[in-house]
Design a binder for these strands. Sequence first.
DNA 1: TTACCACTTGGAGTTAACTCTAAGTCAAAC
DNA 2: GTTTGACTTAGAGTTAACTCCAAGTGGTAA
Lengths: 113, 113
Amino acid sequence: MTIAEVSKKFGLSQDTLRYYERIGLVPSISRSKSGNRDYSEEDCRWIEFIKCMRNAGLPIEALIEYVTLFQKGDETIAARKELLTEQRKLLVEKMDEMKKTLERLDYKIESYE
Amino acid sequence: MTIAEVSKKFGLSQDTLRYYERIGLVPSISRSKSGNRDYSEEDCRWIEFIKCMRNAGLPIEALIEYVTLFQKGDETIAARKELLTEQRKLLVEKMDEMKKTLERLDYKIESYE
DNA sequence: TTACCACTTGGAGTTAACTCTAAGTCAAAC
DNA sequence: GTTTGACTTAGAGTTAACTCCAAGTGGTAA
């Protein structure tokens, strides 16, 4: 798949896709004979995963670390699990904050009736 | 209340409190005779409100608009309600994304057992 | 064979939200 | 009466996460 196709498929700009690769957030993509990126199925799965995690606000830095660990193989499974568990904890905390704020907004909106 | 007290009370840095005032996110704070900020009870309520909204990720720009409308008096009530309703919608959307990601994280963490 | 278009790279620019610095003022303590 | 420490201001610097730009290349179409 070309960068244009991947960009369209996942709704990420070509610049963002190149940026993610440059910083190591996505494993490096192989090139066609003319030097253009050629995304594999697995590359696409990574991109979809990263997009989902970023949408929920997980920081790029943590995701880079996850990808890096992944590439080091099975001996990093414990570390990967720990990383995800920590991010999960932060996510739940954030959601709790948001829930409180949502209730407050609801109350405020109602009082504007 | 001095800026030091407000900073401690709400866990916002003095720089952040000054910044919020400068950009109009908090109504301007009156000064003591020596020129220092003297926060009233109402100022504190604003700061607590802003902090709560910011913790949930509401953008500063939207909050400035809300404060500005508030200061214009009762004729802006409809606009204020609309603004809050829009932000509420965005908040719910974000929470939905996060919920999906949380489920995915849970699944992934479980599969690492 | 020249024009076009999608791609490449390295690097600079942008945005949101702070955070820090420098130079100065004021009141209280020593 | 000078030093200390909390404050003031304007403005510069930082960080995360993109986004844009310029200069160049490779394949296709007129």
